[in-house]
């Protein structure tokens, strides 16, 4: 019988490095796979990944590797923290090495542009693994690296995944909650990025707290609409991966998606913003995927559609804003939605 001795993290960007650090601090031996030679050398020689996580000293339990096979063969639990655009390709390669007893967890909050698939669906397609989970929640990497008390949620249809993830992640400064609503938790983390762009726009325009509250509450309502369509529990969106993540992302300049919205409102162009930003803002891609999905399924999401029009149709922010405010007022709580939600109880 095979014995595993490490926890694997695939992806050496800011979030992957942070998760590896978190796991290392918790006493796990961590194999961190990354493609970038410079980061690999930096972690190996200096216990730092200055390209992504500044001067912060990383856990010495992190062993960087550029060999995906080593991760596949040595780790019972593997966390993938790769942007959605490369997620499938790397997961396919990992799929050449993993076996049916292993656990794979997605830590990416995005959707695949071509297929509209979530990351856990991609894991299911590209590997033989069944015990799949998703890690989400209000987790700004800078704060976790500083050791500020934080929490995340691990969702899986398999109790074993939740239990084992709790064991490796939970510490005195990072608390893990479990959930069986894999779809809801994954969607919460994905969709809030689009709301964060809207929130950044509102702040960039100098609007106050009323506007922020409007964007957040109606944003959650739109998330619930999509969630219900895809079989998620509406209550999940009130939790860490929905409201929790949104509160952080929609108000912190540390959030990339928020910054995209903020700079757009300041008059900068999207290509320029993305070029200057080192890391990927998943919300930009997610807005497009959601637009396509909702058009095909006739779901009305005014805020998310507004963000799409600003990002992809170059529609002036003022026009979008005016259209949003001039929409006919509906009941705050959609009765159809309420019925669907109550039927799930």
């Amino acid at each position: 019988m095979q014995s595993y001795h490490s926890v694997g993290v695939v992806g050496g960007g800011s979030w992957g490095t942070t998760l590896a650090h978190l796991l290392g601090k918790n006493g796990n031996r961590v194999l961190l796979w990354l493609r970038d030679e410079e980061s690999y050398q930096d972690i190996k020689n200096n216990h730092r990944n200055r390209k992504h996580t500044y001067e912060i000293a990383l856990s010495e339990k992190i062993c960087p590797t550029m060999d995906l096979e080593e991760v596949g063969k040595s780790c019972e639990i593997i966390v993938i923290a790769i942007p959605s655009s490369n997620f499938r390709q790397v997961t396919y390669l990992l799929g050449n090495h993993v076996k049916a007893d292993q656990i794979v967890i997605s830590a990416c909050k995005g959707l695949e542009p071509q297929t509209h698939y979530s990351m856990t669906e991609i894991i299911r397609e590209e590997t033989c693994v069944k015990k799949i989970g998703v890690l989400s929640g209000p987790n700004l990497f800078q704060e976790i690296l500083k050791g500020s008390p934080s929490a995340g949620v691990i969702a899986s249809e398999y109790q074993e995944v939740i239990k084992k993830a709790e064991e490796i992640f939970s510490s005195s400064f990072y608390k893990i909650y479990g959930s069986n609503d894999l779809v809801g938790v994954e969607l919460g983390g994905v969709m809030k990025n689009v709301v964060a762009i809207a929130s950044g726009i509102a702040d960039g325009l100098g609007f106050g707290n009323n506007t922020k509250a409007l964007v957040l509450t109606r944003g959650i309502s739109e998330m619930v609409k999509v969630g219900l369509k895809l079989g998620a529990s509406p209550w999940t969106f009130n939790g860490l991966s929905g409201l929790g993540d949104m509160l952080v992302t929609c108000s912190s300049p540390l959030s990339r998606n928020y910054r995209v919205g903020y700079y757009l409102a300041q008059g900068q162009k999207l290509p320029q913003i993305l070029e200057e930003m080192k890391a990927v803002a998943e919300g930009v891609n997610t807005a497009k995927v959601l637009h396509e999905y909702c058009r095909a399924n006739q779901i009305d999401l005014p805020i998310m559609e507004g963000v799409y029009q600003i990002l992809y149709e170059n529609k002036p922010i003022s026009h979008v804003l005016s259209e949003l405010m001039n929409r006919l007022a509906h009941l705050e709580m959609d009765t159809n939605l309420l019925q669907t939600a109550s039927s799930m109880e």
Partner: peptide, 8 residues
């Protein structure tokens, strides 16, 4: 598996 790899 879905990619044609043998699964134990």
């Amino acid at each position: 598996d879905k990619r044609g790899r043998v699964v134990d």
